[in-house]
Design a protein around this nucleic acid. Structure first.
Length: 672
DNA sequence: AACCCATCTGCG
DNA sequence: GCAGATGGGTTC
């Protein structure tokens, strides 16, 4: 019993609640009365149970108000599930923005942002700490920020100083190859976090997979200690996961690292939001409304004044776009430093012999590669990167490997079935056979190249040397410094103590000829990831690129040979701007059964400048019958496109439309 | 599932 | 002319 007559502020009798419903047209707060016995517990942010449309459902209490806007009877809150205010105002705002960016609903985004409740976890974590507003104290000011991992970048130390001083600098960072060393990029990120902590603010760092989370964790253990951060990854159990999340919410821990859902971690007063390897598709959430870490964190930085740091060995066109708009500053090493740290990259088959006999460069592993492996094995482990097979067959120039683009819409051309004529993956236009836009050659090629056998051959050729293989699902995390042949698929490369003495990147065109807009970007990203595990050139580190066109100036190849990821990103962006492709414009994919897509297209009230491509049979994933349409909008009309899609979803849900219509904004791999 | 409102209907 | 039925939309 609470004491009557105790003075209390004016009580706010109305609760505004986000109801957990999948119905898009009900994506707005609903008002409930607060029964006297719940008055104390019914604080903004708590989970509640309410009666909604005849059912008892979960919801989050957004705020308390004095008066209802709803003209009509209000139902009472049934229950406050837990007094924990999990939906902070910042989180509510962030999730609303993310939902609106992707034409999704708030409830959908909240499901991604807030982990399921675990009652035991709530009891084990100490009660909320007092809120301490950030500020630089004198002790922090007196000791210099440790920026040892940033001195190789002219703009690096200043970036850390700004973080430590409480400012919000934004940087696109091209990390130097580090041979997999613990003093490489993980240490740099950890030092950026530590600098941010100097300002009394917190940090969020998102990494694509849990191997990378482990590496940053190890660096943070050294720099800040294991108590100073939590890791939020999907592989923890529900209790551990919720407990760690609560430690952040309750203000006991100010640094959260983890995979994509950690982007929403409720760190108080964030001073830095950072993520590693923007191009990794794991940063894209596979559940509706398919938000990307990049967009979540960018909004977080903008709303909180936090610094922003996106790092990687390569740079995506999206980040390049930010750079060219002046949203982020470049943090890169000077050319001499790059030459010192990067491995030597050579293209096998570029010699005169290969030129006179192109098949020699293709059919077998060239002599240069054999020599490199042999020499490498005398000094340490050698990495052999082998692309997986099974990519869609793409179409590119026979001479220079430039992907052929659709004359009508700029989409990628592909061969849909063995022996079929090439068509555009977006608009269905057939190939008009025009000469290559780069080198003018008329001939095209389309290939799927066999792979694995080559790797086995190498193993057999060096009798007595151990061969290890690593691939997704069968991962080897680390190998020792002793000679070994390490065969790995892209993304599954083990770290080698001291770095690989050499790396062989096989069957380049299996990556390059992949259909889809991102084939070139993805190729450079995967090559660079393997090359970055290799020792620097001055220590003999050599990377051999095998199975790329024997001549010509293919941009991805040049990017790797020159170790010029910034140059590559700029070129890629310029080309996309010319062809009106993302990220210079926004795209949306609407997919589903043919009649559904047809109906949606008729119903959509699109701004006048939106280009409609399709409908076409949907390439992958869907069950045979599905089609998709691509909508393309320039930046100025993109908000109209998103609103139209949101309205479409609302209308469909209001009339209880049958069937599943998949709406996805900024789909990651157009054309597949 | 329950409610609200608009419109229809059957009988005076 | 109007009580009660019917139906479609909303959901606090």
């Amino acid at each position: 019993m609470t004491e009557r007559g105790e003075e209390s502020g004016p009580t706010l009798p109305v609760a505004r609640v986000v109801v957990d419903t999948p119905l898009a047209h009900l994506d707005r707060p609903f008002e409930y009365t607060v029964p006297a016995e719940l008055d104390e517990a019914a604080r903004p942010g708590v989970r509640v149970r309410v009666r909604f449309a005849g059912k008892t459902v979960d919801g989050f209490l957004l705020e308390r108000t004095a008066e209802a806007e709803h003209r009509g009877r209000l139902a009472p809150l049934l229950k406050v599930v837990s007094p924990e205010p999990v939906l902070t105002p910042e989180l509510a705002r962030l999730c609303r923005e993310v939902a609106d960016h992707y034409a999704g609903t708030l409830a959908d985004v909240l499901r991604l942002a807030i982990p399921p409740r675990h009652a035991t976890a709530e009891r084990t974590v100490p009660p909320a700490a007092d809120d301490r507003p950030p500020g630089v104290d004198d002790a922090a000011r007196a000791t210099p920020v440790d920026d040892s991992a940033w001195r190789a970048y002219p703009a690096g130390p200043a970036f850390l100083r700004h973080l430590a001083a409480g400012a919000g600098p934004a940087a696109a960072w091209l990390a130097l190859p580090d041979a997999g060393s613990d003093d490489g990029w993980p240490l740099a990120l950890a030092q950026a976090v530590a600098a941010t902590r100097r300002s009394g603010r917190g940090a969020v760092v998102v990494l694509p997979d849990h191997r990378d989370v482990d590496r940053l964790g190890a660096a943070l253990d050294r720099v800040l200690g294991p108590e100073a951060y939590v890791r939020l990854t999907a592989d923890q159990g529900p209790q551990r996961r919720y407990a760690d999340w609560l430690k952040v919410l309750r203000g006991h821990v100010h640094v959260a690292i983890g995979s994509r859902s950690a982007a929403f971690a409720p760190v108080r007063h964030p001073g830095l939001v950072a993520w590693w390897d923007d191009g990794d598709d794991l940063h894209q959430e596979p559940r509706s409304p398919y938000p990307h870490v990049r967009e979540v964190l960018r909004r977080r930085a903008a709303a909180s004044g936090a610094g922003l740091l996106v790092g990687g060995f390569t740079r995506t066109p999206q980040v390049q776009h930010w750079l060219e708009r002046g949203w982020v500053r470049e943090v890169v090493a000077a050319a001499p430093t790059v030459r010192e740290r990067a491995p030597r990259v050579v293209v096998a088959g570029e010699g005169a012999a290969a030129r006179s006999d192109p098949a020699a460069a293709v059919a077998r592993i060239p002599t240069l590669a054999w020599r490199t492996v042999k020499d490498g094995l005398s000094r340490g482990p050698v990495l052999v990167q082998v692309p997986r097979r099974g990519y869609l067959v793409g179409l590119s120039c026979q001479e220079c490997r430039t992907p052929v683009r659709c004359p009508a819409c700029g989409g990628p051309l592909q061969v849909p079935a063995p022996g079929a004529a090439p068509v555009c993956a977006w608009c269905g236009e057939t190939d008009d056979g025009r000469p290559c836009r780069r080198c003018g050659a008329a001939a095209r090629r389309s290939t799927v190249v066999g792979e694995r056998r080559t790797a086995e051959e190498i193993g057999r050729a060096f009798q007595g040397v151990p061969v290890r293989t690593s691939r997704a699902g069968h991962l080897v995390a680390r190998v020792g410094p002793e000679p070994a042949v390490v065969v790995a698929t892209p993304g599954a490369e083990p770290l080698a103590d001291g770095g690989y003495a050499a790396a062989l990147l096989l069957d380049g065109w299996a990556l390059l000829d992949r259909a889809g807009l991102d084939a070139g970007v993805e190729t450079v990203r995967r090559w660079a990831a393997a090359a970055a595990l290799t020792r620097p050139a001055p220590e003999g580190g050599t990377v051999v690129l095998v199975g790329v066109p024997p001549h010509g100036h293919l941009r991805p190849v040049e990017a790797l040979v020159r170790w010029a990821p910034g140059w590559f990103a700029a070129g890629e962006l310029a080309e996309r701007a010319e062809l009106r492709l993302p990220p210079v414009c926004r795209t949306a994919r609407v997919g589903g059964a043919p009649e559904l897509v047809e109906e949606a297209l008729a119903e959509l009230e699109l701004p006048s400048d939106v280009t409609v491509l399709g409908p076409l049979p949907a390439g992958s994933g869907g069950s045979g019958e599905e089609v998709q349409v691509l909508l393309r909008a320039t930046d100025d009309v993109a908000p109209g496109l998103v609103r139209a899609l949101q309205a479409l979803r609302a209308a469909r849900s209001a009339r209880k439309a049958e069937g599943v219509l998949r709406v996805q904004l900024d789909p990651p791999d157009l054309g597949v």
